[in-house]
Computed example of a mutant assay.
Amino acid sequence: MAPLPPPSPLPEFVYKIAPTAPPDPIPEQYPLSELDQQDGFVHLSVSWQIPITAGLFFKDTQSFYILKLRLANFDPSAVKWDEVDGTNGCPHLYGNFGVKDVVAVREFRRGEGQSWEEVLEGEKGWLE
């Protein structure tokens, strides 16, 4: 992973895909996934990356949850924009997030033979 400068303008929101429903209520410190613990940062996406991330890492999953996080809540030095597999600027949060950062949570499901890209195509308003 090579660090990149942050995008300009910065997006208002970044997103965390979770394979299961988040805790209810969402805690002050969100429980980190094994991957996030192992890598030392929280894997996030910007809106246009969600279908790509879902297609790569959730291709065998029929449903997942997306947590919508307000980027301005994080110290800019805690968010690194890394190049991953040629993808420009994947946001990685070196720290954690919690209830104060979560703007919304939604479950997404796909039907038989449906791609995540097809499911998420109609969600451009929510995925800002």
Rank of each mutant, 00 (worst) to 15 (best):
A18W: 05
W81A: 12
P25I: 03
P31Q: 12
A54C: 11
A2D: 13
V79N: 05
F97R: 00
F58W: 03
S47G: 06
L56P: 06
K59N: 12
H43M: 07
P6V: 10
P5K: 08
F41M: 15
L10F: 04
H92E: 08
V105I: 01
W48V: 03
Q37C: 12
V79S: 05
G86P: 06
A78K: 08
V103Q: 00
I50D: 09
L127S: 00
T53P: 02
E34P: 11
N88M: 13
S63W: 13
G95Q: 08
P6T: 15
S115D: 03
S115W: 05
T61C: 11
L44R: 10
P7V: 07
D36T: 12
I52V: 14
L93N: 06
S77P: 11
L4T: 10
D39I: 10
G125C: 03
A78H: 03
L44H: 15
D85V: 14
P6N: 11
V84Q: 14
R110K: 14
P6H: 09
D39E: 10
L32P: 04
E12V: 02
E112Q: 13
Q38W: 12
P6D: 08
I50P: 11
E123Q: 15
A18N: 05
F97Y: 15
A72Q: 07
V84Y: 09
G98D: 01
L127A: 02
Q49T: 07
G40M: 06
D101H: 07
Y15Q: 02
F13E: 04
L69S: 00
E117P: 09
D75N: 15
S8W: 09
V119I: 09
K124V: 13
V99Y: 04
E128F: 01
P3M: 05
F13M: 02
H43C: 14
E117L: 15
H43L: 11
Q37D: 07
T53N: 03
L71G: 01
G86D: 06
V105E: 00
V42Q: 09
Y94L: 15
P3Q: 08
K16S: 04
E107G: 14
L120F: 02
V119S: 04
A18S: 09
T61E: 13
A54S: 09
A18L: 02
N73Y: 01
G125A: 10
D60T: 08
P27M: 08
A72S: 15
I26A: 00
W48P: 02
